[in-house]
Computed example of a mutant assay.
Amino acid sequence: MILALLSFASLAQANSGMEKPRVRIFAAASLTDALNEAIARYESQNDVNIVPVYASSSTAARQIVSGAPANLFFSANVQWMEWLEGQGVELGSRVNLLQNHLALVAPSGREHPSFIPGNGETLISLLGDQERLSVGDPDHVPAGIYAKQALQFLGEWETLQPRLARADNVRAALALVERGETPLGIVYQTDAKASEKVDPLGLFPDDSHDPILYPLALVNLPASEPAQEFHQWLQGDEALSIFSAVGFSTADDASR
């Protein structure tokens, strides 16, 4: 009986020390708030540890190519997902899940004129002589790439290019506006909605830039069962309602 009790105690101790399955998701910085909420909801219902890593989509993609132990990649840009595949990373169950929009924002607590980009008034007219426009770096950050396309569409790129405050990701661009370091910034609609420190002045026309799609895929295959289950859950109604609440919409083309 003593031996049996000792064996049971040892087994219980071993089981208590077992770690939960871990799933690492590398995701665009603009997904931070919604994905954190989704992860908290999922973990409350499942015995799993979801570990998010947030960065610009370009940085996250490069980290995966360099060997980062990611299980999923959730990009704010279709091109960086395709770049990842072009580097020899096998993707599984890729889906275009969400869609976003591009917004012009200014620090809150100030009076701002109503402004609709492309409606006659120029962005440069809203900047003082030494003031700059905050954006994600157009050389690699998806939000900056879309911003460049929109400014080119509006005929303002050449004028505004020297006046850009380039940030490493869209949340860093938002922070410049929140701190009042720049009077204007171009970020996603969801970022504008998430911050109490900025006011949205207007949305850029959707036809002024490529569709802002968020593809999701399994990476570093074969995928574990917990990774596959979380990937599937993110496409369901419960997760999509969380993303919708912060301003995302479901992508028109929900599958590849």
Rank of each mutant, 00 (worst) to 15 (best):
Glu131Val: 06
Asp199Cys: 01
Leu174Asn: 03
Asp237Gln: 03
Tyr146Val: 05
Ser195Thr: 07
Gln235Tyr: 13
Pro162Cys: 02
Ala192Met: 07
Val170Leu: 10
Ala70Val: 04
Leu151Met: 14
Pro69Tyr: 12
Gly109Met: 11
Leu221Asp: 11
Leu126Ser: 01
Pro52Val: 09
Leu72Cys: 02
Arg110Trp: 14
Leu5Pro: 06
Arg62Glu: 10
Ile2Lys: 10
Ser125Met: 07
Gln232Val: 08
Ser195Phe: 04
Gln232Gly: 12
Trp80Gly: 01
Asn77Ala: 02
Trp83Pro: 09
Pro21Trp: 12
Glu158Leu: 12
Pro162Glu: 09
Pro222Cys: 05
Asp237Tyr: 08
Pro222Arg: 08
Asn169Phe: 11
Gly88Trp: 00
Asp47Gln: 12
Leu133Met: 08
Ile145Gly: 06
Asp207Leu: 06
Val198Pro: 03
Leu97Asn: 04
Thr250Met: 02
Leu184Lys: 07
Ala165Asp: 13
Ala172His: 04
Ala27Tyr: 01
Leu102Arg: 01
Met81His: 08
Glu82Phe: 07
Ser125Asp: 07
Thr59Met: 10
Ile212Ala: 01
Gly202Trp: 01
Leu240Ile: 02
Val170Asn: 04
Phe74Arg: 03
Leu216Cys: 05
His231Gln: 13
Ala165Gln: 12
Gly67Pro: 10
Val23Asn: 04
Leu102Tyr: 04
His231Val: 00
Lys193Ile: 14
Leu84Gln: 02
Leu234Tyr: 05
Leu184Cys: 05
Pro21Gln: 14
His231Asp: 02
His231Gly: 03
Arg110Tyr: 15
Ala167Gly: 08
Asp139Leu: 10
Ser93Cys: 13
Gly236Lys: 13
Gln13Ile: 14
Ile39Glu: 04
Gln87Cys: 12
Ser208Glu: 08
Ser114Cys: 13
Glu37Thr: 14
Gly236Ile: 06
Glu158Ala: 15
Arg41Thr: 15
Pro215Phe: 04
Ala60Arg: 02
Val89Gln: 05
Leu240Thr: 00
Gly247Leu: 10
Glu85Trp: 00
Ile64Ala: 08
Arg132Trp: 08
Gln235Val: 06
Val135Glu: 04
Leu176Gly: 08
Ala29Lys: 05
Leu160Arg: 05
